[in-house]
Design a protein around this nucleic acid. Sequence first.
RNA 1: GCCGGGAUGGCGGAACUUGGUAGACGCAGCGGACUUAAAAUCCGCUUCUCAGCAAUGAGAGUGCCGGUUCGAGUCCGGCUCCCGGCACCA
Length: 836
Amino acid sequence: MRCRDPWGIRVIVDYVVCLAKMQFKHSEIESKWQRYWKERGLFKAADDPKKKFYNLVMFAYPSGDIHMGHCKNYVIGDVYTRFKMREGFDVLHPFGWDAFGLPAENQAIKMGIHPEKWTLENIRTSDESLRLLGIGYDWEREIITCLPDYYRWTQWMFTLLYKRGLAYKKEAYVNWCPGCQTVLANEQVIDGACYRSNCRSLVEKRKLNQWFFRITKYADRLLKDLDGLDGWPDSVKVMQRNWIGKSEGCDIAFEIADRKLHFKVFTTRPDTIYGVTFLSVAPEHPSIDELVRGSACESEVRQYVLQATKRSDRERIEKEKDGVPTGCFAINPINGEKVPIFVADYVLLEYGSGVVMGVPAHDARDFQFAKKYGLPIKVVINPPGEALDAESMTEAYEDPGIMVDSAEFTGLESGEGMKAVARSLSQKDLGGPSVHYRLKDWLISRQRYWGAPIPIVYCEKCGMSPVPDEELPVLLPKNITDFIPKGRSPLAAVESFINTKCPECGEKATRDPDTMDTFVCSSWYFLRYIDAHNEREFCAKDKADRWLPIDQYIGGGSEHATGHLIYFRFFSKVLHDAGYISTDEPAVNLFNLGMVLKDGEVMSKSKGNAVPVGQFVGKHGADVARLAILFAAPPEREMEWTDEGVTGAERFLNRLYRLVTDNVVVIADKRPEVISNDNESLYIKINQTISKVTADLRSFKYNTAIAALWELLNALYGTRVRDHVFGYGIHAMIHMLSPFAPHIADELWSMVGGKGSLVEQPWIEQDDRYMRSKSGTIVIQINGRVRSHLEVSRSMAEDEVKKLAFDDERVNRHLEGKDIKKTIYVPDKLLNIVVQ
RNA sequence: GCCGGGAUGGCGGAACUUGGUAGACGCAGCGGACUUAAAAUCCGCUUCUCAGCAAUGAGAGUGCCGGUUCGAGUCCGGCUCCCGGCACCA
């Protein structure tokens, strides 16, 4: 085999040509520019910003290496950062890791790896992947919540809340997950199942002594201040409003006959008070004991309570409403009527007072209950112009109406009636207007190892006291091997940790064995970035004042709406009230991103459909990855990751690269002075593109921005006369590409003689004199249907356009034998001829 | 059940909070050029139906039904389906 194989030679030649001319080498370019950005410290945020912009993307849980699904957030945050920098802002764009949490501990149990080791290794590999993508973070501010220099301040936050009366311990029925062997906050229970990690066990109720944050004290402010958050999506605000669930009504005190007891009842319908025919008490209610002691029904009630409290929430909801009579009676304060008291498990202890008044005629649940137990139904509200009959009713009438059979209130309309009844009750000191919230206090203790220890010490003499600031952090002991949950924190068994001295008296004392919910760590992380290495404070106030609030918060989806996004607002308000920060809302603008799917499912390692970043970038490059993510769908929507999207992005960059390398000599960095006739329309296209891309960058419409760039690229390819305008077009193209594909943009920029990185250059602006072409298309419609088009110069008079239109052959064809009734003319747009 | 959001070609998605050429841009597909060939690249076509050798012409078309308007993907009323949230909250 000598030179008998011309094909082989051809292939090699093609390959060489391809490498030399057609395609760029992404790996070389990318590492070169990443090095440059790092050396120049381009993304290091100043401590004294002149024109600050705090751009924050939600930090991440280090579950392993990151994949393309995670990248969407980071890429979008980076595009915005680069654009804002080029608009002249000092941008703070930090990143960090929400590093405590269950998966690390589960891994420890399964694989025998210490949670810290597992977590820190994941962070290291994820960091590497992130750097490969060329995301412009200020890495010097990176935070890792599981390290003592961070959780020291998480503990400090706890003691701050404690001192302000916002952290308290109480014995309460809590959501207990038998799988995780720990308690859950309400937000972690979905459909009665545990939503911590991938657990999904059926949640049980348990009575336990636990730590809570008194978020309910802030319910009203959390609700009201939503109105000021114009930069937040309505969907998130609506969800938060529903979650807080404010309802205004009336408290009413019912005395118990023959007992020194009374029940406070909350109702939103005091106007139905004359229709009360029974009272229902939640099975968990602490007064039941006293109520039924010695009653004929005592044993039945006790048995019912026992059964009810054993049931999970879901079981309770799914079964038919039932209850058990207590044999006791309550006295309706407004008319002295005696009504029976039931214990019923459809009544929730946590809402209102745990006792409800039963008004069967005007409440669906009470109606069902009354029918089941043969209780009387009393109509006290009639629909306007109609009279209800209790006997024949098949369902409750719940709408407002006119009060009837209600003594002096009869005839009042519901709204007025509510006020009148409330007024009357408060005059007699039997109740009055009150407000209740669905929001509950935030349960933060977890009986787990991998979290920030709760900094509380118990002493026999002095009781409970917080660990003094100077003794923080309470270090999480590392020498532990048994993470298997046994219903209490693994820390309880670590004597060197548990045994300590009382900060008050110095005697022997014990530590709280529980750790904090990870939502506590993430409630204040945005503050730590501002002053990440401060050893004396969580963040210096002057620095906080300079950077807060977050100008743009970019989040990973609506699943945080009623969790993290409420908690971090709560923390901001607490820290504001305590004088540590000046703002009481953390973020001005919020942008929620859609998830990344692969084959119709959320991309994740556990589903086996994750596309690893390192592997992808190695093959296609970071710029291709970025473009593929951005172009596929608008950022707020879900996107499907496909190989086809990758093809397009790759082709686009190669095309641009070729255009630049083929035309280096004509590329011009100045606006053309003289616009040739040949390329006037191209120049207009260039300016329109600059305008569109700029607007789209401001409003996160990255997919259409890239589409506009693609159009411009096509226009440039189609340009025959490659003059100054053409050269400027390429220059503009490179500029506009830079936030999206920064490596290749900087490379091309240097190829055409640009200095440094485009991030250091001001953003390009359009030439307003050339935004619209001198002529345009006017659509000619007949009866609203398009029949013809006219090319006319701009702002041609209506008469002239009409004349041209009536000369048009296609128009005339449709006008034949018809009467022209009128014409509608929209300048520069259309002429509609109405005929009959 | 209640509260949000959505439904546009074979596919991902455009159409500027303002009613005015629906389908930008990309992917896939088809045709052509270059090549001995292939890949890559470049140029063109590509919503559907009907008529025509053709340029082209006619009709239908943005989940369904109806309305407002000279004109509706866009506004109004009713409905179906999909996604998300809340759900015994008194």
